[in-house]
Simulated scan of single mutants.
Amino acid sequence: MPADADKRDQDLNERIETFIDDLKQGTIQGSFNVAYKTVSLMVRIISQTKWMNANGLKGRSEEGDPQESLHKLLTAEGQIDDFTHPVRDLKATVIEATTELKTELETSGDNIATQSLEHIHSNEVIMTAGKSKTVESFLKDAARKRKFQVIVVECAPFYHGQEFAVSLAKSGIETTVINDSAVFAIMSRVNKVIIGTHTVMANGGLKAINGSHAIALAAKHYSVPLVVCAAVFKLSPEFLCSEDQEAFNKFESPEHVMKFSEGKILSKVQIHNPIFDYVPPELVTMYIFNIGGTAPSYVYRLLSEFYHPDDHLL
């Protein structure tokens, strides 16, 4: 038995280390995959480790407390000071609750899509940008009963918008692709802007695909509503710090912007190719979460429901 336990612990540690390496290297693509794999790993840790009470889930070490957030999530509901007190069927209850969280992640996209008919009406012109699976499901669900036109911003230099437009067109949605520089000129014809996002910040702002800020400014100028489709797991307790752009953003190779073959020019310039834009909350009209629609000013209330106050500093 001890040998089996050691082997089980070793396997679990290897899984944790592999997961951490994948996060650092960007192997796991998409916020949904990151969230789902995180919860799956949590279930494995809870079920395979030995613990008799809530305090046993902390796993304190000299380097810090990697399980602190998990611990607070599980014990925040009751104001209990002594977490060493044994609770009957606690492990089974915790596993059940975490499994329910996995199910919520899996159905979040469908729950957002079912709200589409409340926000998209016939003969509207919708603008979107890049490629978002959540927005794709949202538009396709509305297209079952409504006829509308979609304008997709291609989002150079990666041009994910072109791939997105092809997918919408195959579903019978009238789709037009425009380049990024045409956004302001086209915006006067648009009824509504619907985009996805990577993260919803604590103040109601967005960490969204590069180019989103320009689209949001154009929408504001023409008084066009900007609607953001996002699952609740994209809600973050963190704020954007202007002096901490490296932690907020991610930079790709500038090869898509300027080819390496142009060596003489490259040796004289420094090119930044950021992945994300920050969109301030005053440019966002509404969020459509899987739990319903809400205004940016109400995000603080959602934070208090989904995060313990001690976990606002991650």
Results as ranks from 00 to 15, higher is better:
Ala3Asn: 10
Asp4Ile: 13
Asp6Tyr: 13
Lys7Pro: 02
Asp9Arg: 10
Asp9Trp: 05
Asn13Phe: 05
Leu23Pro: 01
Thr27Asp: 08
Ile28Trp: 12
Val34Ile: 15
Thr38Tyr: 10
Ser40Arg: 09
Ile46Glu: 00
Ser47Ala: 10
Gly56Ile: 03
Glu68Asp: 05
Leu70Ile: 09
Leu73Glu: 15
Ile80His: 08
Val87Ser: 09
Ala92Gln: 04
Ile95Arg: 03
Thr98Met: 09
Leu101Lys: 00
Lys102Met: 15
Gly109Glu: 12
Asp110Val: 12
Ile112Trp: 13
Ile112Met: 15
Thr114Leu: 08
Gln115Arg: 15
Gln115Pro: 11
Ser116Arg: 11
Asn123Thr: 13
Val125Gly: 00
Gly130Arg: 01
Lys131Gly: 03
Glu136Trp: 01
Ala143Val: 10
Arg144His: 14
Lys145Asp: 13
Arg146Ala: 14
Glu154Thr: 06
Cys155Val: 09
Pro157Arg: 06
Phe158Asn: 08
Phe158Tyr: 08
Ala165Gly: 08
Lys170Leu: 09
Ser171His: 14
Ile173Ala: 08
Ile173Lys: 05
Thr176Val: 05
Thr176Glu: 12
Asn179Phe: 03
Val183Glu: 03
Ala185Pro: 02
Ile186Pro: 00
Val190Ile: 14
Ile194Met: 05
Thr197His: 06
Met201Gln: 02
Leu217Lys: 15
Ala219Pro: 11
Tyr222Arg: 03
Pro225Asn: 07
Ala230Cys: 02
Pro237Gln: 11
Glu238Met: 12
Phe239Ala: 04
Leu240Lys: 08
Ser242Ala: 15
Gln245Ser: 10
Ser253Ile: 01
Val257Lys: 12
Ile265Gly: 06
Pro274Met: 09
Met286Leu: 15
Ala295Ile: 07
Leu302Glu: 04
Leu303Phe: 00
Leu303Pro: 05
Phe306Pro: 05
Phe306Gly: 03
Pro309His: 03
His312Val: 04
